[in-house]
Structure formats: structure tokens, C-alpha cells
Write a protein that binds this DNA or RNA. Structure first.
Length: 538
RNA sequence: AGCGGGGUGGGGUAGCCAGGUUUAACCCGCUGGGCUCAUAACCCAGAGAUCGGUAGUUCAAAUCUACUCCCCGCUACCA
């Protein structure tokens, strides 16, 4: 069977060991969801895929601490994350896990193919080893005192207190996280990926791909210029995807070797369930990988290099990269309890408030995004409620109270009416352009610019003075409210759907065609449902 | 230290890449007025920045160049 989809969107895989927080949502999942929702309305054949990232040291440590089997542990988080995303209206066509059979197989295939082609070699490295636990202690298995600020109980690779990166071997008073005893240096064989060999090809690809953001590109090109180092892709851990070589007993692949392969393995699984050739589907689609800038290196260097090396799967066309999330001007930090989880937020406010606010403040760049509670409230109350919500509500209640809830008839359009329709067409066109260019905050601003005009129109028409003469205006406004439901659907899908119901229209707003937003589809005499307040003040 | 990003009215931003379509735009806030259909929401008018600093390029610079000050992020086995 031949392939049908045209666009594949993936979002960075969420690490399966903790709550989803607003940082994840802001940089990655919300932008992707808005984009995908828009494309669906536009009629594109598009799918959104993601998964949990199930391997790695922190998960193993955490699972051990809780006395849980690591697979059970990541399954728990996978389920919990699905709920969070669903509650936020973030929809996936498939949400899988990197510990899936498909991803294990594809990852081993990647390794084998790269190994055959000579891109992987083995060499011994010195590593800390715990003689009590009889195991090597990678990165986060060792804690000690920070050599810079003397802060105790820090992981051996970085200090939470002063934020410095601690070079391997420099941590003071190192001890094993599991048993507390002091580790010794011991030699271990590791596998390395020849990233250095891909320098020229990466440089070419980065330079020639015009879809990549220039700021991120410059940042990454800086690394290439400095010279890429080969990459240690194996770990002495019991939790991970085994290195598929007989000689490599007990070694697994590093999480960053396998997790982005999850994009492809999930896609293949998705297509396989539909009897579609996954490789062909992947290679003929336009690929978007949405990420946060913290993982820019992995997506702009490691990922493309690995795909170049294997050769079977095309590289991404777009890697939309957004910045860090700060809360009241300070960096998010779980350990310092300076963060907001999705659950915590949704206990207080509806999901659309979060979507509306975040979409409005997140630019298409790696600039950081600051969340501020008072600004959040202000923005919801003034833009979402007093501007957009007010227009919708005044129109609907006016029709309900003055025309028995029936959309009135239209007569000859005057100059102002025609201007309104021009504004509508422009808005529909320009919002689409912005979202298509991934400029989501600008798209939202374009919508509020339009509703400002709608409020002005209503004001100038003074329909309350002569209900009979106001019929054309209300006919037009009712239709514009319908258009707004469609325009707003990518941003605030729950409210858009409620609005669709209030308008008493057929079907669901999510299945409408974007272009019909510039048409007048509600006929005279159409009965709306009783208007209710769509947005309560925050 | 190096690399990347940024400094625009009281706050938050757009514009800068492709210099002049802008008397520097938008939102919030502020001042005054109007309306009363609407969740004290809406509409109109107004005050307020010469675009971090300096020096250049140009007929013309917030937009280009150099230097400089300040802020933020990153620096590879942290996901």
C-alpha cells in the first residue's frame, strides 16, 4: 500500500522520571500541537508522534530507590504523561516509548549498520568503579563535593549550587550513590561514534538547510568549527538497549544514541499498523522535530550525523527550537522547588488559559520565555476575556436577547461592513501565514488585532440603538464568531469547541476547513444556543 | 575565557536579516472624554521612548560596520 502522509511532526521525548512541567510545554509540546492543529484544519496530511524516553542513569537510580522494576517505573510515567498531555489538549497520533520492541530493534539496527560501515570503534577509558557494588559508576552514580563552591552532595558532573560543570574526575570526596563507599578508577571498554568524520557533511547540511533557525545554526556551527569529538555511546549499565555485539556483554547504548531513533521507530510502528511502508513514508514526508534549546546539539549534530551514517532515513527539514522557561525571572529548578507542573497548574486554571498565555509569549527563537503570574492574569483578563471573549459574548447575547436567538437577515452592505469582511479575509490569510512560518505568537497577536477591530465595528454600528437596522451587522458578527472559533482552535481548542456548540453548528470545530473561516457559512434564521460565559476571569 | 543571544516610552514586546513605505508600532499601565449591547467589559482622544554608549558607512540607520558597557544562555558521558 502506498504512503499517504505528507508531514511528520515529532516532539522531544519526555524523560520518564517526573512530572511534565511548564518548561516542557512551552518550548516543545504546545508549539507543536498548535502547528499540527492548524495544519489539520488546513487539510494537510499530518501526524504528531512522540514517546517517553525510558532509559538512562537517573531512571535506573530512581527506580532502584523506589524498589521498582525500571520497566514498571517508566510505564507508570508514560501513563501519567499521557494524561497530562491529554488534559492540556496536546494530541498525539501516537505516543510510544523508547523501551518498545520497535525502538530496541531499530536502535540495534542503527548500531550494527554504523559499526559495519566503520563509524564505530572501541577503546578503553578510565572510569569510576564501585568495588562493593561490583559495577561501573557512570555520571550520576557518583556524588561528592563541588571543587568550585565546596557544596556537598553534588552529582559528579555538575553542581546544582553554583551551576558549574565539573570535569570528570575532579569531584572531591567521591562516593557511590548506591552504597556510599569510595569508588576506584578502573578501565572499561567503550564504544565511540566517529562524529568527527561527519564535520564537513554536517557543516554543509547546516549551512544549506534554509529552514533551520539562524540563531541556533550559528550556535551549533560554532561547535563544528571548534572540532567535533568522537562520542562515547556505550554505558556499563543494566538498564538500556544492549550493544548488539557478542563481545559487549553487559554494555548498553547511551540514551542519546537511542532516544531520537524513537522518532523513526514510532513512525514506523504507526505506519505498520496501517499497512504502510514506514521507511518510504518517512523518507517522503516533510519532517519537523520540535525541541527546546537544551538539546540543540543532539538534534543538530548527533542525530543528523547518525542518520547520514546509516543512510536509510532522511534528515529533518525543520528543527523548531525554542528557549528556556523562567519563572518570575528565575530559572526553573525542580530541586529548589521553583517550578510549576502541568498538574499543579491545571488544578487552578483551565488548560486554554495556559495555552493562550504561553502561545502569546513564546517567540520562534531560542530566546528565553518568562512566566509571570501577574502578567498571566492580566493577559487573560484583558486580551482573552475583555477583547476576544467580550466580542463573542456581546454578539451572542445580543442575538439571544433581541432576535430570539436567531441569526437575523442581511441587507445591503455599507462601507464599514465591507471593510469588516476585508479585515476578516486578511486575518484568516495572515494568521495562516504566521502559523505556517511557526511564528505562533505573532499569529495569536494577529487574531487579537482582528478582534479589536471587531469590537470597534460593533461600537460604531451601535446596534442597541436600532435593533432593526442592526440586523446586517449582527448577521455578519455571528459569522465572524464562527470564524473566530476556527481561528482560535489551534490555540485554545477546548474553548473553540465550546463556542462551536454555543453557535449550535454541525460537527466539531476540529474538523472544519481553515479557509471556510473567511466565508459566511451561518445562514439567516439559524438558531444559536443560549450564550454562556466562555471565559471566567482569572 | 570562548561561543551564541539580547539591550527599543513606567512594565512587556514588534520592527533589525533584505536601511528610506513610521510623524518609531503593539499590549498593559496612566490622564481625559464617550457609550451602555457586553464578564466595570467596549469605543475615542491624549501624555510618554530618538531605539545601551561612542565612532563610522550612506543622500538616508533602531535597522549596516568597528569599538565599548551591561544582561542572559551554553561549553559535549545532565535528561
Amino acid at each position: 500500500m502506498s504512503y499517504s502522509s505528507k508531514i511528520i511532526v515529532t516532539t522531544a521525548l519526555i524523560y520518564a522520571n517526573g512530572e511534565i512541567h511548564l518548561g516542557h510545554v512551552t518550548s516543545t509540546y504546545l508549539p507543536a500541537d498548535i502547528f499540527v492543529r492548524f495544519c489539520k484544519l488546513r487539510g494537510d496530511d499530518i501526524i504528531h508522534l512522540s514517546a517517553t524516553d525510558d532509559f538512562g542513569t537517573p531512571i535506573l537510580i530512581e527506580a532502584n530507590r523506589k524498589g521498582m522494576n525500571p520497566q514498571k517505573f517508566v510505564d507508570y510515567w508514560n501513563q501519567r504523561d499521557r494524561e497530562d498531555f491529554s488534559n492540556l489538549g496536546i494530541h498525539f497520533d501516537m505516543f510510544d516509548k523508547t523501551s518498545s520492541k520497535e525502538n530496541r530493534e531499530l536502535t540495534q539496527y542503527f548500531f550494527t549498520k554504523l559499526h559495519e560501515k566503520g563509524y564505530i570503534y572501541k577503546r578503553p577509558i578510565w572510569q569510576l568503579y564501585c568495588e562493593n557494588c561490583k559495577k561501573f559508576l557512570p555520571d550520576r552514580y557518583v556524588k561528592g563535593t563541588c571543587p568550585y563552591c565546596q557544596s556537598a552532595d553534588q552529582y559528579s558532573d555538575s553542581c546544582e549550587n553554583c551551576g558549574r560543570i565539573i570535569p570528570p574526575g575532579e569531584i572531591l570526596d567521591p562516593h557511590c550513590v548506591i552504597c556510599g563507599s569510595e569508588p576506584v578508577q578502573k578501565e572499561s571498554e567503550h564504544y565511540f561514534f566517529k562524529l568527527s568524520q561527519f564535520s564537513d557533511r554536517l557543516k554543509k547540511w547546516l549551512t544549506e538547510n534554509k529552514n533551520l533557525q539562524t540563531d541556533v545554526k550559528n550556535y551549533v556551527l560554532g561547535w563544528v568549527k571548534e572540532g567535533l569529538k568522537d562520542w562515547d555511546i556505550s554505558r556499563d549499565l543494566p538498564w538500556g538497549i544492549p550493544v548488539p555485539l557478542k563481545e559487549a556483554e553487559g554494555k548498553v547504548l547511551y540514551v542519546w544514541f537511542n532516544n531520537h531513533i524513537g522518532y523513526i521507530s514510532t513512525a514506523k510502528k504507526y505506519f505498520a499498523e496501517r499497512q504502510i511502508d514506514g521507511n518510504q513514508a518517512w523518507n517522503s514526508a516533510t519532517i519537523y522535530h520540535f525541541i527546546g534549546k537544551d538539546i540543540a546539539y543532539h538534534h543538530y549534530l548527533y542525530l543528523p550525523a547518525m542518520r547520514m551514517g546509516v543512510g536509510d532515513f532522511k534528515l529533518p527539514d525543520f528543527i523548531p527550537t525554542r528557549g528556556y522557561f523562567t519563572l518570575e525571572g528565575r530559572k526553573f529548578s525542580k530541586s529548589r522547588e521553583w517550578f510549576i507542573s502541568v498538574r499543579e497548574f491545571l488544578d487552578k486554571f483551565p488548560p486554554d488559559y495556559l495555552r493562550f498565555y504561553l502561545a502569546g509569549i513564546t517567540p520562534y527563537s531560542q530566546a528565553d520565555v518568562n512566566f509571570n503570574w501577574s502578567e498571566f492574569r492580566k493577559r487573560i483578563n484583558t486580551e482573552l476575556i475583555a477583547n476576544i471573549g467580550n466580542f463573542i459574548h456581546r454578539v451572542l447575547t445580543f442575538i439571544w436577547n433581541n432576535y430570539d436567538g436567531m441569526v437575523p437577515e442581511t441587507e445591503t452592505l455599507d462601507q464599514l461592513d465591507r471593510t469588516l469582511l476585508d479585515e476578516l479575509r486578511n486575518a484568516v490569510k495572515e494568521v495562516a501565514q504566521e502559523i505556517d512560518r511557526l511564528e505562533l505568537s505573532k499569529g495569536l497577536r494577529r487574531i487579537t488585532k482582528f478582534t479589536t477591530f471587531c469590537n470597534q465595528y460593533f461600537q460604531r454600528k451601535t446596534p442597541w440603538k436600532d435593533k432593526d437596522r442592526a440586523k446586517t451587522a449582527l448577521y455578519l458578527c455571528a459569522n465572524i464568531v464562527r470564524s473566530l472559533a476556527i481561528l482560535l482552535e489551534p490555540y485554545i481548542p477546548f474553548s473553540a469547541e465550546k463556542l462551536w456548540e454555543q453557535l449550535n453548528l454541525q460537527g466539531v470545530v476540529h474538523k472544519q476547513a481553515w479557509n471556510t473561516a473567511s466565508e459566511l457559512k451561518i445562514p439567516t434564521g439559524h438558531k444559536i444556543n443560549e450564550p454562556r460565559i466562555l471565559f471566567e476571569k482569572a
